[in-house]
Design a protein around this nucleic acid. Structure first.
Lengths: 239, 239
DNA sequence: ACCTGAACACCGTTCAAGT
DNA sequence: ACCTGAACACCGTTCAAGT
């Protein structure tokens, strides 16, 4: 076993010298929580989840990384706030298009799906918990539509839960898939690879997967998502 | 600006002396991938996601942390393999109970739901990608049941996708909720808190959420999950 | 073939000190 | 009230060196 241990001693580090932050001049106005969230979204969208560090965020905001903690409790809260901001913006685009309830449910669902698709990192951090305004807006929109549809009160809670769970569940699954398509592979390439694997499976053990393997590469995630919504709606019985 | 930078110099560190791993004697047999995955599951189940580090895993396996890289590519692959192992074990318990197709779909769905509930960390890392045996088993079980149910070929792909997406989507959402119930709060406490918030919402903007707030604390996630499955099944038209 | 652990290049978070 | 960044206590991953 080696007898060498390490201790730190003050000295000039050439690495630190070379990489000393060439930061622009300090900001003059105070930071705001919203500015931080928007900057975080910009980093997440352009460079992905791994690139969102307090140091990178502080650099973009021309401030020290400790400053962020004055406005946001920690990284988890930052991610949650960024995700909810996206969801909220997505519902609001559909808020005024209210027409027939089923159409409205479809519109809200697609808005969430598209938002998750455009910002795949949103899928990581959600779940119902107090203060998620965006999620609450979606919850209300779907629930209100069920009332308008005339679903009897005793069926409403389960129907609402199924829809809302389906919407967020599928949207995040899809986002997770989108997340792993970024280096080298395309979505088509990934699906083709999976289809090939499924096509080679044992026919006795995996007859169904072999059968549908061919459908995989060409299919439209968005319309398949919508087909699921329609399936749930078809199971509902308005009185 | 401070002129102090830091460089490392070999010396005896008292911290390292005090915390030197009091590890048991080295293992004699070679590690296996399965052993690593099982040890990872044990840590994830007992101490949660944050506790799974290569160093902790190596300590439990009485080996060096570098050894793990010989068997597993990286942490992402380790998490994915652990999650798939759980899913696979869950389906296998239902594999022989095959009765009526709808009953079988319910049984497989509940097995996945319960597995996610017992191992909430499973929700983090899944998504279809080559080589996930557990997911493939669920996919096949659901698809085969749809064939047995007599769902026409042109509807099968969408119906299968809706079910499979619902199952994994909702199970992971539920697991995410379970994950944030661990310190101080109980599930009941969390739901009661949310219900209270929803009950105080503006009646004009959130009429539905106010209405269902009361249903939240007492409801059974498992049976509500099943109600969603039934809703999708009800929308299907066997010929 | 398989294991070891020093070393590297980072992290999130805290907090005394500043303005 | 709000910001700064040194310091702390970690991480995952690599890789030369061992057996």
């Amino acid at each position: 076993m080696s007898a060498n241990y390490w201790i730190s001693v003050p000295f000039v580090s050439t690495w630190r010298m070379a990489n000393k932050a060439p930061r622009a001049e300090r900001r003059t106005e105070a930071l705001s929580r919203l500015q931080i969230i928007e900057a975080a979204i910009a980093i997440l969208d352009s460079q992905g989840e791994a690139a969102l560090t307090f140091r990178a965020l502080a650099a973009r905001l021309s401030t020290g990384f400790g400053a962020i903690y004055w406005h946001v409790a920690n990284k988890e809260a930052l991610l949650a706030a960024a995700a909810d901001h996206i969801v909220s913006a997505a519902v609001e685009t559909t808020q005024l298009t209210a027409t027939e309830p089923r159409e409205f449910i479809r519109a809200v669902s697609l808005a969430v799906f598209d938002a998750f698709d455009a910002h795949p990192w949103v899928g990581i951090q959600l779940s119902l918990s107090p203060g998620r305004v965006g999620m609450m807006q979606v919850f209300e929109a779907i629930g209100g539509s069920l009332v308008a549809l005339g679903i009897p009160q005793q069926d409403r809670f389960d129907a609402w839960s199924a829809l809302v769970n389906y919407i967020f569940g599928v949207a995040s699954q899809n986002a997770a898939n989108a997340r792993r398509v970024h280096e080298g592979t395309t979505r088509e390439g990934l699906l083709t690879e999976i289809a090939e694997r499924w096509g080679e499976l044992d026919a006795a053990q995996y007859p169904f997967l072999r059968e549908i393997a061919g459908h995989l590469p060409g299919h439209d995630d968005r319309q398949q998502f919508l087909a699921g919504i329609d399936l749930i709606l078809a199971g509902l019985n308005p009185r």
